[in-house]
Design a protein around this nucleic acid. Structure first.
Length: 142
DNA sequence: GCCAACGTTGGC
DNA sequence: GCCAACGTTGGC
């Protein structure tokens, strides 16, 4: 079964609109070890929510993983355990949310309680539990 | 290998 | 602009 992930991005650096314009992208720049663990687990066909940090603080659209993690060509290398040190995945643009799902809305909804997005500061890649993925899609009008 | 100092992220 | 959270670095 396809998993769902949430990827954070600072829209002034790379926004969902940039992804839509390009059609696809190599999602790079993830260095945080926990985030890298999640990124390595991404499989082709997995769904991805794109979350904008900064002023927006909202899930603004979806994308699909089109290729599993490979090493960042700009900084190749393996960890001591033989894993890709800085994984990057290829994404295909999906639909923009009809209604952005804001951080405030998710914080206000008890069903999101305990999710990493709300509890773990600075984590830029995280899994979305299936129930929340469904809920977010419905809130976003997707 | 500890841990204090420092840097970065990201919400407020 | 501030600061809490948390990762990283470097001296020992």
């Amino acid at each position: 079964m396809a998993a769902t992930w949430l990827l954070k991005t600072e829209p002034s650096t790379y926004s969902f609109a940039d992804l839509e314009a390009a059609g696809q992208t190599l999602w790079d720049g993830v260095a945080n070890p926990t985030a890298c663990i999640h990124l390595r687990a991404c499989k082709p066909g997995d769904q991805v929510f794109i979350y904008h940090t900064g002023d927006e603080k909202a899930i603004v659209g979806v994308a699909k993983v089109s290729a599993a993690a490979i090493a960042d060509p700009k900084q190749p290398g393996l960890t001591a355990k033989g894993e890709i040190k800085f994984p990057v995945v290829k994404l295909e643009a999906g639909a923009a949310a009809k209604t952005a799902v804001t951080l405030a809305a998710m914080k206000a909804d008890a069903r999101f309680a305990g999710w990493e997005l709300l509890t773990q500061a600075r984590l830029s890649v995280m899994p979305v539990p299936p129930a929340l993925a469904k809920l977010i899609r419905s809130m976003a009008g997707l």
